[in-house]
């Protein structure tokens, strides 16, 4: 079938915008300059954060095995890479990589969202409910996650907003932190948000990176649900453990 060349009403012709002329070379520059490329940056940074969250969630479960186990693990993290790396360096490298991932992800999300909103300036008078809940909440969910990351660092990394906030004693800080009702609420809302974000995000990232194998969609969507559930449930078990007195 052929596509008709669009009939143009006289006087309606626009000269049409021209894309920027890009110099050859520069994979990263090409990526950052296009919608597909920025989405790729989001997918890679998102998957990196997802991998980190998975490790982080498993490590958190040590809280159920007592203070020595948890605090010992936290200490061991600082010795990783020694003697090649100095004490604590591994942790700083990981923090730098994660910070870069969060910033790249957030900036791309902001720029792409601005563009998407501008591309549909007039809404339809006849509205219909569109897309799934997880899909529709990616932007608000992302904002919740960004705010939570700040809160979480102030709580358990720097100890600023933690009632105990003693360095080297994560177990005691966790137990003290979750005594406050609002700390629990913030944490629970954020973990539900991260679950929804992963549910849409994992599958979405696979599409962005070009996974097209027939049958892959089903596996990826199921995988997204499993990952989302495991991460949300795993993280939530900690405040629930403190609230119910299993962890004290």
């Amino acid at each position: 079938m052929t596509m008709a060349t669009v009939t143009r009403t006289p006087g309606s012709q626009r000269p049409g915008p021209r894309p920027p002329v890009r110099p050859r070379g520069g994979f990263l520059r090409t990526l950052w300059g296009s919608t597909i490329g920025k989405k790729t940056v989001m997918a890679v940074s998102g998957l990196l954060m997802l991998a980190y969250l998975l490790v982080h969630m498993f490590a958190n479960l040590k809280v159920f095995f007592g203070p020595e186990e948890m605090n010992g693990y936290a200490h061991w993290l600082r010795t990783l890479g020694e003697p090649l790396l100095r004490h604590g360096w591994f942790l700083w490298i990981a923090r730098a990589v994660l910070l870069a991932a969060v910033v790249l992800h957030g900036v791309s999300a902001y720029q792409l969202s601005r563009r998407d909103i501008a591309a549909r300036p007039v809404t339809y008078r006849h509205q219909r409910r569109q897309a799934s809940y997880a899909t529709r909440t990616m932007r608000w969910g992302g904002i919740i996650l960004a705010l939570f990351i700040v809160w979480h660092i102030l709580d358990l990394t720097t100890g600023t907003v933690n009632p105990r906030g003693q360095e080297g004693h994560p177990y005691e800080n966790i137990v003290a932190g979750f005594q406050n009702w609002y700390a629990n609420v913030i944490y629970i809302v954020a973990m539900l948000a991260v679950g929804l974000h992963i549910r849409h995000g994992f599958w979405s990232a696979a599409q962005t990176l070009g996974v097209t194998r027939p049958g892959a969609a089903r596996v990826l969507k199921a995988g997204a649900n499993v990952l989302a559930l495991a991460i949300t449930a795993g993280f939530l078990s900690v405040p629930i453990g403190v609230m119910t007195g299993v962890v004290k």
Partner: peptide, 10 residues
């Protein structure tokens, strides 16, 4: 992109 179409959010 230059035409002002939005990006894909799947």
């Amino acid at each position: 992109d230059a035409e002002g179409f939005g990006g894909c959010t799947l």
